[in-house]
Deep mutational scan, measured.
Amino acid sequence: TQSIHIEKSDTAADTYGFSLSSVEEDGIRRLYVNSVKETGLASKKGLKAGDEILEINNRAADALNSSMLKDFLSQPSLGLLVRT
Rank of each mutant, 00 (worst) to 15 (best):
G17T: 00
V36R: 01
S67K: 09
M68A: 11
R83W: 03
L69R: 02
F72T: 06
T84S: 15
D26R: 11
S67T: 15
Q75A: 14
L54H: 01
K37A: 14
G27L: 01
D14W: 01
L64F: 08
L81A: 05
L41V: 09
K70I: 09
D71N: 14
T39G: 15
G79F: 11
N65E: 12
A12V: 12
L41K: 08
A42H: 00
L31A: 01
G27H: 05
I28Q: 12
L80E: 04
R30Q: 04
D62G: 12
L64M: 08
S77H: 05
Q2A: 05
E52T: 00
H5D: 05
G46E: 00
R83N: 09
P76E: 15
T39S: 13
A63W: 03
E38R: 11
S74G: 09
S21L: 10
S9A: 12
S43G: 13
H5G: 03
L80Y: 00
N34C: 09
I6M: 15
R29F: 06
D14E: 14
F72R: 03
D71S: 12
Y32R: 05
T15A: 07
E25V: 11
D62A: 14
S9D: 02
T15I: 04
D14S: 08
D14Q: 10
L81F: 03
K44G: 09
V33R: 01
L81S: 09
S66E: 14
I56M: 12
Q2E: 07
G17M: 03
G50W: 03
A49L: 10
I28D: 06
R29A: 08
S9H: 01
S66F: 08
V23T: 11
G27F: 02
V36P: 00
T1G: 05
E38T: 10
Y32V: 09
V82Q: 05
N57I: 03
S21E: 11
Q75V: 05
A49V: 14
S9Y: 06
I4V: 05
S3A: 10
N57K: 03
K8N: 06
D62R: 11
K8F: 06
L41H: 07
R30H: 10
R83T: 06
I53C: 02
L78F: 01
L78E: 06
R59M: 14
T15Q: 09
E38H: 10
S74C: 10
V82E: 10
I4N: 01
T1E: 08
E24M: 11
K37T: 13
K37L: 12
E52I: 03
I4T: 02
A61T: 14
S43Y: 15
I53V: 09
N34T: 11
E7Y: 13
R29K: 15
S74F: 12
T11S: 14
S9Q: 10
T11R: 12
L31Y: 12
D62I: 11
N34Y: 06
A60E: 14
V36Q: 00
M68P: 01
D71E: 14
A61C: 08
R83Q: 08
G79W: 12
I6F: 07
N57D: 09
E38N: 06
E55A: 09
K45I: 10
K70N: 09
E38C: 06
A63N: 10
D14P: 02
L80N: 04
Q2M: 14
D71G: 09
S19N: 12
I6Y: 05
D14L: 05
L64Y: 07
A49R: 11
K70R: 12
G17R: 03
A42W: 00
S9N: 05
A13V: 11
T11A: 13
V33T: 02
K48N: 10
V23I: 08
G27Y: 00
G46T: 03
V23G: 04
A12K: 14
E7N: 09
Y32A: 02
L41C: 09
K70P: 05
V23S: 10
E55L: 04
E38L: 08
T1N: 12
L54C: 02
K8S: 07
L47F: 01
R30W: 06
E52H: 03
K48L: 04
D26M: 09
Y16W: 14
D71R: 11
D14H: 05
G17P: 05
A63P: 02
L78P: 03
S43L: 06
M68L: 08
V23F: 09
E52N: 04
D26E: 13
I4A: 01
I6G: 01
A49W: 05
D26P: 04
R83A: 14
E55H: 05
S35W: 09
E25F: 05
K48S: 08
L41R: 09
K44E: 09
A42K: 01
G50K: 03
S43Q: 12
A63M: 12
V36C: 05
G17H: 05
S43M: 13
E25K: 12
Q2W: 13
N58K: 15
R29C: 05
F18S: 06
T1Y: 13
I56H: 00
E24K: 11
L47A: 03
Q75G: 15
I4R: 01
I6N: 04
E52R: 02
S21C: 09
K48A: 08
L41G: 02
E38S: 11
K8L: 13
E52C: 00
G79N: 15
S3Q: 11
L47D: 00
D10M: 08
Y16Q: 05
V33A: 06
V82G: 02
L47T: 03
R30M: 02
S74V: 09
V33E: 02
L41S: 08
S43R: 10
E7L: 06
S22L: 14
F72Y: 14
T11P: 13
R29W: 05
S43F: 12
S66M: 14
L73N: 05
A63F: 06
G46Q: 07
Y16R: 01
E24N: 11
T15L: 03
K44F: 04
I56L: 06
I56Q: 00
I56P: 02
R83M: 09
N34G: 12
S19K: 06
I53R: 01
E7F: 07
S21N: 11
F18G: 02
F18W: 03
E24P: 06
N57F: 00
S35C: 08
L73E: 14
M68I: 13
I28P: 04
S77V: 05
S9G: 14
S21H: 13
K8T: 01
L64G: 02
D51Y: 07
G50M: 04
Q75S: 12
T15K: 08
R30A: 03
G46P: 07
G50A: 02
P76M: 04
R83E: 15
K45G: 01
E38Q: 13
P76H: 15
T11C: 11
L31H: 06
N58C: 11
N34V: 11
T15W: 01
A42R: 01
N34Q: 12
P76Q: 12
G79M: 13
T11Q: 10
I6T: 03
M68S: 07
L80T: 03
A12F: 12
S22H: 13
G17W: 01
T39H: 13
K45R: 08
G50E: 00
T39W: 09
L47Q: 00
N58H: 13
L73R: 05
Y32F: 12
I4F: 08
V33M: 00
Y16L: 02
D71F: 06
T1C: 08
T11I: 07
V36K: 02
S9R: 11
A13E: 15
E7A: 12
G46W: 04
L47C: 00
L64T: 10
L78Q: 02
E52F: 02
T15R: 05
P76K: 11
Q2S: 08
Q2I: 15
V33G: 02
E24Y: 12
K44M: 07
T39P: 10
N34I: 11
G17L: 03
V82M: 05
L31S: 04
Y16C: 01
E24S: 09
A49S: 11
D10K: 10
E38Y: 03
G17A: 02
R29L: 08
S66G: 12
G79C: 13
S9K: 13
A13H: 14
I6D: 00
M68T: 15
A12G: 14
H5T: 09
S19F: 06
Y32N: 05
L78S: 05
I4K: 01
S35F: 08
V36M: 02
A13I: 07
S19I: 01
D14R: 06
A60D: 06
S35D: 13
F72A: 14
S74P: 05
I28E: 08
K8E: 01
L31V: 10
K44D: 05
S3P: 06
